[in-house]
């Protein structure tokens, strides 16, 4: 199966690991990720205001490009997924936004939200299947105790994201099980890491990140996995006190599929 792929800015710079391990793992699983030929930064936060149109255009361009390629749009970074999925929802449900965006972009065929936006984890769950993934694992991460940190962007608002139960998700735990490790369910796995507040109020970001990492440490996790570069940064850099390594889930996936070294 081939997906149109939207990597996003951070995956080209500070979060290269998230991207490259995803690609090699996908190749090993027979999933093709066709990067959109032209894409722009999604803006990293979803513009909530009803009268914000310009800030939604880059997401619509990506959605439209995938539609024109006749494919579903695969995302990887939590923030990009969040922005693109919610803008797509606006294009379906908010007539004012839909009309204004189409008036501005003047596409040959008006865009009305027909592209399906799929996160890489959803692709693993729904396209590959976790049972199938478990069979493809060549180097199961036996004995590893891994905590999933979901953050906010993948889960909320639940009625738009439709990713998993926003209060008691399991997709990352199922993923961890599929790659042969033991999932450790931790407190605060769906509470904010501090997000962009690290620039405005580092103390707040530190407090939030520390709470999460402390929870993982006291639950006996040896690793925390995440899908978001900003979460990874906050948990890795801003948490004070006891530390637990914070990795992208794709790195562990590549490792379990035996394709990590080929990359490195």
């Amino acid at each position: 199966m081939t997906f149109s792929y939207y990597p996003g800015c951070t995956l080209k710079t500070k979060a290269k690991d998230l991207d490259r391990y995803a690609r090699s793992a996908a190749a090993a699983l027979g999933v093709e990720m066709a990067e959109l030929p032209e894409w722009q930064c999604c803006g990293a936060v979803y513009p909530q205001a009803k009268d914000e149109i310009a800030t939604k255009l880059s997401a619509v361009r990506a959605l439209m490009a995938a539609r024109d390629e006749g494919r579903e749009l695969l995302t990887l970074c939590s923030a990009c997924h969040h922005v693109i999925k919610r803008v797509n929802h606006d294009m379906v449900s908010d007539e004012n936004i839909r009309t204004k965006v189409n008036n501005y972009l003047k596409p040959e065929v008006p865009y009305t939200g027909e592209t399906k936006v799929i996160h890489y984890l959803e692709m693993l769950r729904d396209t590959v299947g976790f049972d199938e993934l478990a069979k493809r694992v060549t180097r199961p991460l036996k004995g590893r105790r891994i905590a999933a940190y979901y953050g906010c962007m993948l889960l909320r608002p639940g009625n738009v994201m439709g990713f998993d139960d926003p209060e008691n998700p399991r997709i990352m735990e199922d993923f961890i099980r599929a790659i042969g490790a033991e999932p450790v369910v931790i407190a605060y796995r769906n509470e904010c890491c501090g997000g962009y507040m690290t620039l405005e109020n580092r103390a707040l970001a530190q407090k939030k990140a520390t709470t999460v990492v402390d929870a993982a440490a006291s639950a006996g996790a040896d690793t925390i996995v995440t899908a978001c570069p900003l979460c990874q940064y906050n948990l890795d850099v801003n948490a004070v006190g006891e530390r637990v390594p914070v990795l992208y889930f794709t790195e562990l996936l590549a490792e379990a599929l035996g394709v990590k070294e080929a990359e490195a």
């Binding site: 800015c9 990293a44 620039l199």
Partner: peptide
Amino acid sequence: HLKAVQIPELLDEKLPQQAIVSAFRKY
């Protein structure tokens, strides 16, 4: 609330672009 000139002093080696873009969008 956030001006471009402030950015360099806020950067560190690991800070993802996402944080800067988010903060600009918000502020």
